[in-house]
Design a protein around this nucleic acid. Structure first.
Length: 104
DNA sequence: GCTGTGACGCCAT
DNA sequence: AATGGCGCCACAG
């Protein structure tokens, strides 16, 4: 497993409850600000077997946009369970954006 | 025009 | 056959 992939997983698993991160931020924190899309791909690839909290990962707009409404509802409900205020299917990234740089 | 963001795969072992 | 790894290019402000 490549260091980058491992970093991404570690970061996602390192996200506390009630916090969310954008793809670009994770990729940047992992060491590759250009691999935002790859993060999503790896995220899904790993979540196949592992229990990764990928629902805590949203896009830079804070909007939960996936290929299924039911998936959105599930992720949205889970986020509210975590303590994240989901407004109109979106979270206040400005408030729940996990400062990985400061936590590092 | 430049830089940031983007979610469900495809190929090899 | 199934699982792991890949680190881009195009669109929008």
């Amino acid at each position: 497993m490549q260091p980058f992939t491992k970093e991404v997983i570690t970061i996602i698993k390192g996200i506390p409850e009630g916090q969310v991160m954008s793809y670009g931020q994770i990729a940047k924190a992992a060491g590759n600000p250009r691999a935002a899309r790859q993060v999503a791909r790896i995220l899904h690839s790993m979540s196949r077997k592992e229990n990764l909290p990928w629902h805590r990962v949203v896009n830079a707009k804070g909007e939960i946009v996936v290929g299924g409404e039911e998936a959105i509802f599930t992720q949205r409900s889970t986020l509210e369970e975590e303590g994240v205020q989901v407004q109109d299917g979106k979270v206040s990234l400005s408030r729940y954006r996990y400062n990985f740089d400061e936590s590092e």
